[in-house]
Write a protein that binds this DNA or RNA. Structure first.
Lengths: 319, 319
DNA sequence: CTGAAAGCGCTAACAT
DNA sequence: ATGTTAGCGCTTTCAG
């Protein structure tokens, strides 16, 4: 084509205000420039930061984002995946609720690329972006051991989650390496709340001197309960947790945590998904494992001065 | 049609696994069963809870949700609205970043229904779901006055936001009614941080005995700074804030706040939008103003016992 | 009341 | 290299 003509055409496009119609493209068999995101709960800070990162990254690549909160129900996930397949979106990022994920495999049969986030797919090797749950927990427990603790209690949820069991596994491994006895207590509907369990734990024979909480909700509840029992943290009971949160620096003492690269988790998921969309099924599955950071604050027993100098903001939050 | 035939057809539909193709419908001129949501930041807890509520409500009505974080930039809002118009979605819910919102009017010209959330549209009367910012602030300030405070400082953001100016307005009105002198201090890039400002405030002549923070971020920063200055809250300085947050009950003392019905805000926005989608432009614009709740805790000076009995969880959060 | 056909805007295959 | 056309799956209109 002569560049003269091309220029004329472009001018006409602008003049008329022509916009390609996506519905027609999709009808013709192309995929919509839309990414799907399924998370258990969009109101949960961890998932919300992921969702935000994913949406921003998707927008940069000129994709819109369909977001769904599954409410921790796999049947909702299933139903929404069906809808996404019908809408011919370009790909899905999913933080699955439960271990069974056969319904996602139906999506893959429909040639819809999927990236697993935070929790991998069982029974299949699939693209995934994860975090070094096990290793990070080991570093955290080792830190408590270095503080001289021998009786370290692990408080965790009853829920069967990949992240949880990896963290419990990391705790076990670190304790074994230090030749210490493991103590694991579950929090949940059948086993009772933190407030109900802590008194009996403190009355038990090998009384723990430190607590590792596998998630921040438990950590906050533990700290509150210890305070209402007038136990000094960290001197009478040390505390450390997996997963940073806003209140961790607002409570006193500030809580020592493993900080996850939440924002990067989302960004990497998008990059991986976009690559997969481009390449189709030519490449084999990729698993990206991101490094976490041990953020030493006060609740583990480290000095206040040291804790303040190391204080970190949670990434991905408004200033 | 005979019901015999109808039954046969339905059976065939199920057998074949027929699913209507939305792209074809849209191409034919119908609207997609998709709602659009534009918020400043999906990682912000307030917006995240709204987004979650909206998505859940939309799903119940069999709509999917396209979500966008504008990053507080109106040009992103503008661009994303354009994309939503092109995609022929059914309607938009928007928490606008700034006061100018001419770009949303272009959407309304394209017969795309819009509901404003948390902040109303300027220059136009449009469907909106809001909160009684002004009245709630007055109740909160009156509560501080009842505690005997005469010097009440209002700490707020520099940002020109509807919610902010309403809250400042409520503070002014309550102070005037109590015949007290108003004191307003801005926090922001030009005026400095809370930590920078508090010392000078405490050195000023009519020394405030109570602080009202127009948002929870400021409240948390104020409490932290007061604690690092070894000032007892509430005895040496009372504190109360607009907008509840997780850390409000985790800090000590627990912070007295105006609690917004965040989850309901989202639900109402969806109902209103769905009504508008059904009715077209036949009905006139509706403004829904939701009631807030004054949650008395400890930082205002109320007794600990009273505060605990009234303690409330933030709605819309995972358990 | 049932059946056939046109056409939404695009792409891909084909013919010029 | 350029132009033409069929058809994606649905709705709507018009004919039978």
């Amino acid at each position: 084509v002569s560049r003269d003509t091309e220029e004329k055409v472009r001018a006409a496009i602008r003049r008329i205000g022509y916009e390609p119609n996506e519905a027609a493209k999709v009808l013709k068999g192309q995929r919509a420039r839309i990414l799907g995101l399924i998370v258990p709960d969009l109101a949960d800070p961890f998932f919300a930061i992921c969702a935000n990162a994913i949406q921003v990254a998707a927008r940069k690549a000129e994709y819109m984002t369909l977001m769904v909160a599954s409410g921790h129900q796999s049947n909702v996930e299933r139903q929404q995946v069906e809808m996404m397949i019908q809408r011919h979106i370009a790909g899905i990022i999913i933080i699955p609720t439960s271990l069974d994920n056969d319904h996602f495999l139906t999506a893959r049969k429909n040639e819809l690329p999927i990236v697993w986030l935070d929790r991998p797919s069982e029974n299949t090797d699939a693209d995934a972006v994860l975090v070094d749950n096990r290793e990070a927990t080991m570093r955290l427990v080792e830190h408590l051991v270095e503080h001289g603790h021998r009786q370290i209690l692990c408080m965790t949820e009853e829920r069967k989650l990949f992240t949880n069991s990896e963290r419990i596994g990391g705790y076990m491994q670190a304790m074994r390496q230090a030749k210490l006895t493991t103590m694991v207590r579950m929090i949940g509907s059948t086993s009772g709340t933190v407030a109900e369990q802590l008194p009996s734990i403190l009355a038990s024979k090998p009384r723990p001197t430190a607590i590792f909480a596998t998630c921040n909700l438990i950590a906050a509840a533990v700290l509150r309960q210890l305070q209402s029992m007038h136990l000094d943290v960290p001197h009478e009971m040390a505390l450390a947790a997996f997963d940073d949160f806003d209140a961790a620096t607002l409570m006193s003492p500030q809580i020592t945590v493993v900080q996850q690269p939440v924002y990067n988790l989302g960004c990497n998921a998008v990059s991986l998904l976009l690559e997969r969309i481009k390449s189709g099924n030519t490449k084999s599955a990729t698993q990206i494992v991101l490094k976490t950071e041990l953020v030493i604050r006060e609740s583990c027993g480290c000095g206040v001065a040291k804790a303040i100098s190391k204080r970190k903001a949670i990434p991905g939050r408004r200033q």
